[in-house]
Design a protein around this nucleic acid. Structure first.
Lengths: 137, 137
DNA sequence: TTATAACTTAAGAGTTACTCTCAATTTTAT
DNA sequence: ATAAAATTGAGAGTAACTCTTAAGTTATAA
């Protein structure tokens, strides 16, 4: 059993966020001890993991709550949950593509500045002079 | 020259967001026509691109403004800007790793549900029964 | 065995980054 | 010429945290 701090450390999520998620109904099954303190089980950690996954791919909290509710309803919702996971995966793959593109731009920029520094050059990319040739990515 | 709508379409950013960014000082160099309407040049699009890049990697707006200001100051800030790009690239690579992990979890989940559906099985992963074996990712 | 430091709780205020609505122009297409 | 579409800034609204506070709980150290 884990306290909220242990879960926070283990999962790299702030305690504040975990409490916020708890209040949002993402962990309706987490038990409390006699002093009202949350006790996360190993199983609960798996729920935290999937919530973190959905969240980090940009799923809205309302939609995460929907997924949780579907899990609680049970077997009759398996197909809908499958659809949600497929959509989420699709979104994640799109984000991967976007991230690759942004990394390409950052690589270009890195080289651009490195070159300026190594060769002691001036920066021609400046709002005041409209030189765009060397900006093509 | 592009209107804000054309930039929005071209760069896949909402007009609202572009105006918000403009108000945040991210485009201090974009010219207006005689009726106060913004006219984005090709060069300006490059600025939108780098702002979008920084933003999509989670750079805070305050830090983006700082980067813009450094660009305007000019050559003396090249090293600081180089550092920002390096840090940003590092963050982007971390996000790539995180995304890969989340994709692995989504793949697992997808297979899990697919198996349930194909074999007409019940969902054992349920807040009520604490079965965790098949959850190991 | 007390005390004191670290931890937990909920409620609610504050923050960031949009996102939307509005009303007043301006531009474009018939 | 006039109706539809686009642009503007101001300002309200929203999502998802993030932090503060105050009260209570637990662990460790003198």
């Amino acid at each position: 059993m884990y306290t909220i701090k242990e879960v926070a450390d283990k999962m790299d999520i702030s305690e504040h966020t975990l409490r916020f998620w708890a209040k949002s109904g993402f962990f309706p099954f987490v038990k409390r001890n006699e002093n009202n303190i949350r006790q996360f089980s190993e199983n609960d950690l798996e729920w935290v993991k999937i919530v973190k996954c959905l969240r980090s791919v940009g799923t809205e909290n309302k939609a995460i709550k929907r997924y949780i509710d579907l899990c609680i309803i049970g077997d009759s919702t398996i197909k809908e949950r499958y659809g949600i996971i497929q959509d989420t995966k699709k979104k994640a793959l799109e984000q991967m593509e976007e991230l690759k593109q942004q990394l390409a731009l950052l690589d270009y920029k890195e080289n651009f500045y490195q070159n300026l520094i190594e060769n002691n050059l001036k920066d021609t990319w400046n709002p005041m002079n409209n030189i765009t040739e060397e900006l093509a990515v």
